Each structure stands twice: as C-alpha cells, then as structure tokens.
Simulated assay, not measured.
Amino acid sequence: MFNFAGKTAIVTGAASGIGEAIALELGASGAFVIVSDLKEDGCASTVATILDRGGKAAPFAADVSDPSAMEALVAFAEDQTGALHLAVNNAGIGGAQAPVGEYPIDAWQQVITVNLNGVFYGMRYQIPAMERAGGGAIVNMASILGSVGFANSSAYVASKHAVLGLTKTAAMEYAQKGVRINSVGPAFVQTPLLTDNLSQEMLDGLADLHPMGRIGTPEEISALACFLLSDRASFITGSYHLADGGFTAP
C-alpha cells in the first residue's frame, strides 16, 4: 500500500503489539526500520521478521524515559543510513488502576515519565534530525483516552491528553519546515499490554464498549499510522485520528 523506499524510520515500543505491527509494515514498504524497545530480545525478534521478509532493519534497545537514550537512538539511525525521515513514538505503559484520591504517587510519575516525557524526548531529537534530512513525518501514539475520560486511569488519561497538546504545538512550530506531526487514538487493541493482564470475561466486556462489538488489531492501527507517515497524507499535520471501532461516537 505504501512506498517508503529510501526512508529511515524509528519505531519505539516495537517489540510487540502496535509498535511491532507498524515496524513490520514499514519494513515491508521499503523503509529501513530502527526497531526500539526496552526488551532487547523483542527488538531482535521484530528485526529478524523484517529481514526474513526481505526488508531492512536494525535493533536499538532504549528506554524512552531517558533523554540521553533518545538522543543516542536518533544518532544511531543517522549513523546507520545517513538520515532520519520517519518516527513513531509508540512506547507506553498503562499504569495503576485507582481513583484520583487514592492514586499512587510513584505510579503517576512513572506513567507521565514514559507516556508523555518519552514522546517529548523522542521528538526533541527526531525533529532536528528530520530538518537535517530535508523533512519528515512523526506519529505519536495517543489513545481514545486522549479525548475522553476513563475511571481509575487518571495518569494514563492525563498523559494521553497531554500528548495531543504536545503534538498540535509541535506541528504548528514545524509545519513550514517540512516536518509533519500527527497523533493516533486507538481504542482497545489486541496487544500483550491488554490481553496478558485481563481475563476473557473482562476482554469481552471491553469489546462490548465498542459499537463494532470487538476490540481492534495492531494491523488496523498500523494502517492508519503508516498512512499518516506517507506522502499520501502530505496536507495533514497537527491532527488527532481515531481508530476506535466507534468507541467515542455515542
């Protein structure tokens, strides 16, 4: 569907789930993919799949909550291919479940550090690299919870609302400098973050919250993210795009 030949892309949180699906689609579409995640073995697995399918990729284990690691990740991408053109800031965590008045302080700080600061740290170094390359595109992975609330998930909801504001502001700043920046808002998706931590009964309950009667797949989110990265979306920046099975429609 897409042609990313000659492009270099960074995908964080790419060891599994949505990040893995995006990395695989970018690789299948001709991009050289820098596969990043905390999990070295997960990075290696995703890279191996891309290579087995005839694509180009390299692993780089990194913690998005560490600005020096994000700087090193971008430097690695430029060292590997000479330029950075595309980035997906996808890494994130769910956090504790508790009402605001009982939410653990350390859990709040961890979620904000990974989900919000991690996106900022990524863009802080990705954007100058893309300017050096003559332009590029970034997708920040938000959530449906970037636009609505969800009880007992205050840190996650706050972090994703903040990602939207950060995305819009950066998009305005770089709109005339050749760097497009958008965000994607998935509803509940079949990822290890979800399916490894919930019973089938709970998963069925979540599916019922979507008018389509099911949760999404990583590939469905990847299709939207890759479109936004592609030249087909050349007039789209600063936007928030939902892939939610109708979750936010009511």
Rank of each mutant, 00 (worst) to 15 (best):
L26W: 05
L116P: 01
E173H: 11
L194F: 08
V184W: 05
G205R: 07
G118T: 12
A96W: 03
G42L: 02
A44W: 04
A249I: 09
D196W: 06
A72R: 13
Y103V: 10
A175G: 04
L51E: 14
N140H: 10
V64C: 08
E40G: 00
S199P: 00
S147Q: 07
A87G: 12
H210T: 11
T46C: 04
F32L: 09
V11N: 01
R214D: 03
G213T: 10
A175S: 15
A137E: 05
A223H: 06
E40I: 02
V179Y: 12
F60A: 08
V184I: 15
N152L: 14
S234C: 03
H210P: 09
D204K: 13
A69S: 14
M141G: 04
G17V: 06
V74K: 07
F120P: 03
D231G: 13
V64G: 02
L164Y: 12
M202I: 07
A87D: 06
I22P: 02
G82A: 07
A75P: 04
L26M: 04
W108P: 00
V47L: 09
E25R: 15
D196E: 14
G165A: 08
V88Q: 09
S147I: 10
D106R: 02
T169G: 14
G30Q: 12
D41Y: 05
P59T: 09
G149N: 06
A5I: 08
A91R: 03
F247H: 11
F150E: 12
I34V: 15
F120E: 10
V184N: 11
V179L: 11
F227K: 02
A31Q: 08
S153I: 04
A77S: 12
A158M: 06
G19S: 04
K7H: 10
T191K: 00
M212V: 14
H85I: 14
R232L: 06
V33T: 10
L224M: 13
E20K: 15
A151Y: 07
V179A: 07
A137C: 15
A129M: 13
P250S: 15
A62I: 08
S183H: 06
A23Y: 01
A249T: 12
V88E: 04
I105F: 13
L26P: 08
M141D: 02
Q97E: 14
H241C: 05
E219S: 13
E40W: 00
V100H: 03
G13E: 10
Q190Y: 06
L73N: 05
H161F: 12
D52F: 00
P67M: 12
E40F: 00
F227C: 01
G42C: 00
S234V: 08
D66W: 09
I215L: 09
V119L: 13
L166W: 04
C226T: 13
G216M: 07
Q109V: 09
K160N: 00
D196A: 10
A28N: 12
T237P: 12
Y103Q: 11
N197G: 09
T8D: 08
S16A: 15
V157Y: 01
A5H: 09
A77Y: 03
P104E: 02
L224P: 04
S36K: 01
I10A: 14
G6R: 01
Y156K: 08
D204Y: 02
G19T: 03
D204A: 14
V163S: 06
V88A: 10
I236A: 10
A75L: 05
T248K: 01
F60V: 01
V100W: 10
